[in-house]
Design a protein around this nucleic acid. Structure first.
Lengths: 210, 210
DNA sequence: AACACAATTAAACATCGTTCAATATAAAAT
DNA sequence: ATTTTATATTGAACGATGTTTAATTGTGTT
């Protein structure tokens, strides 16, 4: 089966280290998901792309799920990079959060397959999401927290609670938008919804309580 | 050629009509998803549960996706029923929305597998979500719209926009909570987030614009 | 040069969604 | 009644999937 690649006879033992193979597999899987979506990701396709057979994949990963989690973690890294760079040129907290929101929508629509993969995939019952993955999520929420910390309300607010609520909300809009559960869900209209959510939520935070 | 049309049934085996088989299959699939999750749903399992073979399923449904969409539609019907009954004993708009939010969380946690199925599943690229399915989603958003219509702000608000934004937000909190992407995501903490989102968003809507 | 050990493969397994020729059976025609 | 017609249903097959495993192949060590 495993066709030789690049004129090589066979992949020999010391061609690549364990770590190299791991990296290659993740990158190959990343490309496949990006181009064809998570449903199109198969172990054989990944193995073929890096010039090995499935057995080698299972020698490096426990199973397909572990590979997917790594792909998704890489996507979260890309997302963090794009978001953190976007919010450097803003002054008012509201502007920062709005920029972050729009940039999040932009990423979701631009890398639809990769972004969807992060939330489509879930580990089999019993397996817990590894902490290094959740750390990435926390780091992302941290961006919002940072932007919210300078909010000038007339009372202290719990920034972690607020960033969780607000950002989950923005995420929810993207989810329903991209999966076609909302009507007229193009990027422009989605941004209108995100705007509404952020503006009013922040206004509510700053408003005097009843 | 004596082409029969009208009320004539042609059930060969006369055990069940086409429609009966359809209903039986949907109910069986519903049970499987409820108990074991969408990943555990197989055509053979469904066929076996209703005493037929897979071939018959494909004689009644175009493919597995079509069956799943029907299961999910039934779930949306259940959800609508639970939500619409819950919001009958409230006066102030905010109370109604809060009740709807909490009830939504309750349904998601109580029927985790069914609820997840609605959003995990997506049709293959090219297939569009049938309009009778989207109608169910619209109907659900209608519940929020109705509750928002009595909001007393100092300026008119676009209730459809607001209900889309707010409810997508509540949904997003549930998604991240149930899929374990948030820390300490038990039902109680999720409700705190939902509370924060709804209260502040509504406060923002009613607040005077700067 | 021979050995031991890890990496890698090829093949197999069970299961999946889906298709299709063959069969069974009810209704219509004779 | 008997034959004809049409279709509901089956059962087996197909290709693809994730995963496992016995057998090899290559490398480092003695």
């Amino acid at each position: 089966m495993g066709l030789p690649h690049g004129g090589r006879l066979m992949a020999r033992r010391s061609d690549h280290s364990r770590e190299e193979i791991k990296t290659m597999a993740i990158q190959a899987a990343h490309q496949i998901v990006e181009r064809e979506g998570l449903v199109a990701l198969t172990t054989r396709k990944v193995a073929n792309a890096i010039g090995y057979t499935v057995g080698t994949l299972y020698h490096v990963f426990q199973n397909q799920d572990e590979l997917i989690v790594h792909v998704n973690a890489a996507t979260l890294d890309d997302l963090y990079k794009q978001l953190s760079e976007s919010a450097t040129h803003c002054r008012k907290p509201e502007s920062c959060v709005l920029i972050l929101g729009h940039e999040y929508v932009r990423f979701a629509y631009q890398h639809r397959n990769l972004w969807s993969s992060v939330f489509e995939h879930s580990l089999p019952a019993g397996d817990e999401t590894p902490e290094w993955f959740r750390a990435r999520v926390t780091k992302l929420f941290g961006l919002i927290e940072a932007a919210l910390e300078n909010i000038t309300g007339n009372q202290r607010i719990d920034t972690q609670l607020a960033s969780n609520a607000l950002w989950s909300g923005v995420h929810g809009i993207c989810v329903l938008g991209i999966t076609g559960k909302l009507e007229h869900a193009d990027e422009k209209n989605i941004n209108v919804l995100v705007d509404s959510l952020i503006r009013n939520y922040l206004a509510g935070l700053s408003a005097p309580k009843k």
